[in-house]
Design a protein around this nucleic acid. Structure first.
Length: 668
DNA sequence: TTAGGGTTAG
């Protein structure tokens, strides 16, 4: 009866306990059964309490007790009780039992104490292949895949026969390492030894080949399988998606006989990695329409898509959803939420999450620092970086990009210089070409053009177009024609099709009233047939993303939008606005130029936002390019006229418009 | 009548 009540997953431990309490003197076997019952019904704490009670009642544990007890531990329990229970094992003399050793290796591996796990393994007699599997599995769980492969080689030397499980583990390690050579070598050995792979091993092989980019072999294994399960399909879908072949992945996904939460998440993540964010939201809705519950893995991809689209309402909805359905909010989800809020311009919400997090990894700090930086809170970003240095989490090269960005957007020259040198001196991180780009940007904006150029000349690597682009931008602001031409030519050597360069260069000539050169640049552009990337603005209304390109007529409510634009135009004129057409780059009359800037996509999006949201609501727009001078002037006034906070995220930073001014202080 | 190792996702 007790054993029945302790059935895995669907037991009734309350009833089991009632029965158990009626037994006058339960023996070892009964105690073990109860402990196993709690473990199998996800109550490892109750299992530990019962174990303590068992000892208190003078009943000695046996070989079975510890595997039952330890098997259900999560990380927290393992950290809390692992060492102590190991001491009990030693005291009661069960150290040499392989089942107990296995359980202890498991517990140490989930608490991250790989040295302790390894010590146990090293002390064991190495004949038993199951313990080899346990330690290799522990290394896989700790993401130390190279160590797994090393142990497999050792196993061969000592002539311990690998089992099917060993092969699955080591093939999986090869997949994670993207070591096709070693993986294929093992596969050949498997074939030479006439081992017939079972389903799990076949799946692991498909995953390995697909993950290493050898889709053909993966396909042929897949097609020759007698029986496939959902994992076989998912492994191949994931392989295609990770190679960027999202449409092929989707085709295969559609053919799947069944899909589980992982298959859906793989597909969603595939769209996310291909930057097809609107499709992420579409397939996410589709998944819900067939009643598949998302989990925390799914949410990370969906939140990332929301972040990139600026889909504030959808992201907020997801937060509520996660609360309601008790989705496990781990450090990955929190990091994604911080990024989401930052990319929607809500630094306060992001910081709130950051502040409440129990555990932060380097991504948490990096995301928050970068989020503060691009939103114009440079000082706060630097404070946070100082705080980070006091923790055990080490910054990496990406963290430094965020920190340098903070300095750039706030003109913090000295801080920036110091940080740049401390990268190498205190943290041993060598600046890459992006860091040099930041430094050039920092110096350039501050007007130290010669030093910026010197920096480029002394870089240990070849400067790329972004480095020269930073210099060109600075030359435009500080009107240095000679250096600007140099930078522009360097960029065009590297990227003859870079349309933005022509715009920056002609801006520079225009500012200096060199109209002849402006014309030459235009001719060059026309001759070379360079296409500018079309500007595009996104705005979310009621959870739907609306997309606008310049002069757009495709929107279903375009007539209302045009009426609103006309009204906006009149209000702007009354407020003293004059169109600024210096950044218009096509050969047309002044009147036509004014018409062009008037129809810029961010203005369309804002007009639509004013139309479709209640008075006083914040309007959030995401733009794929830099905001133009004219739009920047106009939006400042619009924020005052219509009493709205307008947040525009452009290609590199945020503009928070409110009461007629912008958070970037016109410095971007 | 009690025990061990495995494959897919951020």
């Amino acid at each position: 009866m007790v054993s029945f009540c302790c059935t895995q997953g669907q037991g009734d431990m309350g009833y089991a306990r009632l029965l158990f309490d009626e037994i006058p003197e339960p023996d070892n076997f009964m105690w073990n059964t109860m402990i196993r019952g709690y473990s199998n019904n996800s109550s490892p704490e109750a299992a530990v309490s019962l174990y303590i009670e068992m000892l208190a009642r003078g009943v000695g544990p046996d070989n079975y007790t510890y595997p039952f007890l330890l098997k259900a531990f999560d990380r927290q329990m393992a950290i809390e009780f692992g060492g102590e229970l190991h001491a009990h094992v030693t005291k009661f003399g069960f150290c040499s039992n392989p089942h107990v050793q296995d359980a202890l290796i498991h517990v140490y591996s989930i608490s991250g104490e790989m040295d302790a796990a390894r010590e146990l393994f090293d002390k064991s007699p190495k004949q038993n292949s199951v313990l080899w599997n346990a330690i290799i599995s522990a290394y896989n769980r700790s993401k130390k895949y190279a160590e797994s492969c090393k142990l497999f080689a050792e196993m061969e030397e000592l002539q311990v026969e690998p089992t099917m499980v060993t092969l699955v583990l080591v093939i999986s390690a090869c997949a994670k390492l993207k070591n096709l050579e070693y993986g294929a070598w093992i596969h050949r050995n498997i074939e030479n030894c006439w081992i017939v792979p079972n389903l799990a091993l076949q799946n692991a092989l498909i995953d390995m080949y697909a993950g290493c980019g050898d889709i053909r072999t993966a396909w042929s294994l897949f097609e020759n399988m007698e029986a496939k399960d959902v994992i076989s399909w998912t492994a191949l879908v994931a392989g295609l998606a990770n190679l960027g072949q999202v449409d092929q992945a989707r085709e295969l996904f559609n053919r799947m006989p069944e899909r589980d939460i992982i298959s859906w998440t793989v597909m969603i993540d595939g769209y996310m990695k291909a930057n097809r964010f609107k499709e992420v939201l579409e397939i996410f809705r589709e998944m819900q329409s067939v009643s598949v519950r998302p989990d925390e893995f799914t949410m990370v991809s969906v939140l990332t898509a929301c972040a990139n689209l600026g889909a504030f309402e959808v992201g907020e909805w997801i937060r509520v959803y996660m609360e309601r359905y008790k989705i496990n909010i781990d450090v990955f989800v929190n990091n994604a939420m911080i990024d989401f809020y930052c990319k929607c311009g809500c630094v306060e919400n992001a910081f709130d999450i950051f502040d409440k997090m129990q555990k932060r990894d380097k991504f948490t700090w990096t995301t928050m620092i970068n989020g503060l930086a691009i939103n114009g809170h440079g000082e706060h970003a630097l404070d946070l970086f100082t705080r980070m240095l006091r923790t055990s989490v080490r910054p990496d090269e990406v963290t430094y990009i965020g920190v340098l960005t903070a300095c750039i957007h706030n003109g913090l020259i000295e801080e920036g210089r110091e940080i740049f040198s401390s990268m190498i001196n205190t943290h041993g991180i060598f600046p890459n070409v992006c860091h040099y780009g930041c430094l050039v940007d920092l110096l350039g904006r501050a007007g130290q053009l010669n030093e910026a150029l010197e920096t480029i000349k002394n870089m240990p690597m070849k400067p790329n177009s972004r480095v020269w682009g930073a210099l060109l931008g600075a030359c435009r602001v500080h009107r240095n024609l000679e250096m600007g031409e140099l930078a522009a030519n360097k960029i065009l050597e590297l990227e003859p099709d870079n349309g933005a360069v022509y715009v920056l260069l002609s801006n520079l000539y225009a500012k200096l009233n060199r109209w002849e050169e402006v014309g030459k640049v235009k001719d060059m552009l026309m001759q070379r047939g360079v296409k500018k990337i079309p500007g595009c603005s996104l705005i979310e209304i009621n959870g739907n993303i609306h997309e606008f390109v310049a002069g757009d007529c495709a929107h279903p409510r375009i007539e209302e939008i045009h009426t609103k634009m006309e009204e906006m135009g009149r209000e702007l004129m009354l407020a003293g606005y004059a169109p600024d057409t210096t950044e218009v780059f096509i050969d047309i009359s002044e009147e036509e130029k004014e018409d062009t800037v008037y129809k810029h996509c961010e203005k369309l999006a804002i007009a639509f936002g004013l139309l479709s949201s209640p008075a006083g609501a914040t309007i959030r727009v995401v733009k794929n390019l830099r905001i133009c001078l004219d739009c920047h002037n106009a939006i400042k006034l619009i924020s005052r006229i219509y009493k709205r906070v307008i947040v525009v995220r452009d290609k590199t930073r945020f503009h928070h418009f409110s009461s007629g001014s912008c958070s970037c202080k016109d410095y971007w």
